[in-house]
């Protein structure tokens, strides 16, 4: 007896998962002349603007600001793109779900994986900036790869919650857009964490992305292996979010079909 929509069922459909991810990747680069290059250029150009604005106008005094900005930005973009796409994934796949049985979690998961592919390209841009600005790449960089896994698990958790809500209430999309902007400023992407006034420090400490961004920079910019404490924070935040996400999603998934 096979239980529908369980984890074993999801495994049976792994080939569909790869096809969905491959399709998204192909579509993204199909009609652009420079193709994959955009995933490199986009963060590079954004970084250039941010560096000029904040280094020249606001006179932030961070050592190697360019690498600082682009590393934070890549992590935050991964999170925001993955969760935004996962949010709409269920109701944009309504046509398939109405016709045949497919494990529903496959759609948000495919969006998270697609964003991860984009992020891996963007990391090349980060490495280029590091090379150009003289940041040495050491074996501590492998710690930064681990960050991607944390952010992926965390984004999947958030994405599962968001898509469960978005099926019933579509305007969560607009609310989430605003929330993401606020979230970006609550995360030290473009400013140094040290300039946060003491009374707002709690914002950083309860923001999972603060830990992910810090974790990513530890290995990449400062050549430290991230501490066990920092890893624990990342792990607990991402796993707890995933568990909540799976719980919310499983409670709602059978009702999706009635609303799409």
């Amino acid at each position: 007896m096979r239980k529908k929509d369980g984890i074993i069922d999801l495994w049976k459909y792994k080939d569909l998962l790869w096809l969905l991810v491959a399709k998204d990747v192909k579509v993204k680069y199909k009609r652009s002349i420079m193709g994959v290059l955009w995933s490199l250029l986009n963060p590079l150009l954004t970084m250039l603007i941010l560096t000029i604005v904040f280094k020249e106008l606001f006179r932030f005094n961070i050592e190697n600001f360019a690498a600082y900005v682009i590393s934070g930005q890549v992590i935050f973009t991964f999170f925001s793109e993955a969760t935004s796409l996962a949010m709409t994934s269920i109701y944009t796949s309504g046509q398939i779900m109405k016709k045949v049985y497919v494990p529903k979690a496959i759609f948000p998961i495919s969006k998270i994986l697609y964003s991860m592919v984009n992020t891996l390209f963007s990391i090349i841009a980060v490495l280029i900036v590091c090379l150009l600005t003289g940041v040495p790449i050491t074996s501590a960089f492998f710690g930064s790869i681990l960050t991607i896994a944390y952010v992926m698990i965390f984004s999947l958790g958030v994405g599962l919650i968001l898509c469960s809500i978005a099926v019933f209430l579509r305007d969560i999309e607009h609310i989430y857009g605003v929330l993401l902007t606020a979230w970006m400023y609550a995360t030290p992407v473009i400013y140094p964490a040290e300039i946060m006034p003491d009374r707002f420090l709690f914002v950083l400490y309860c923001n999972p992305l603060y830990y992910f961004v810090t974790h990513f920079r530890e290995g990449l910019l400062y050549q430290h292996i991230p501490s066990i404490e920092l890893n624990l924070y990342c792990l607990v935040y991402s796993l707890v979010t995933l568990i909540v996400g799976v719980y919310v999603f499983n409670r709602q998934r059978n009702r999706f079909i009635l609303y799409i």
Binding site: K12, Y13, K14, D15, L16, L19, I96, V100, V102
Partner: peptide
């Protein structure tokens, strides 16, 4: 054929 097969849960 591969896409539809995967949608029905058959492997590559």
């Amino acid at each position: 054929i591969y896409l539809n097969g995967a949608t029905l849960g058959y492997s590559r």
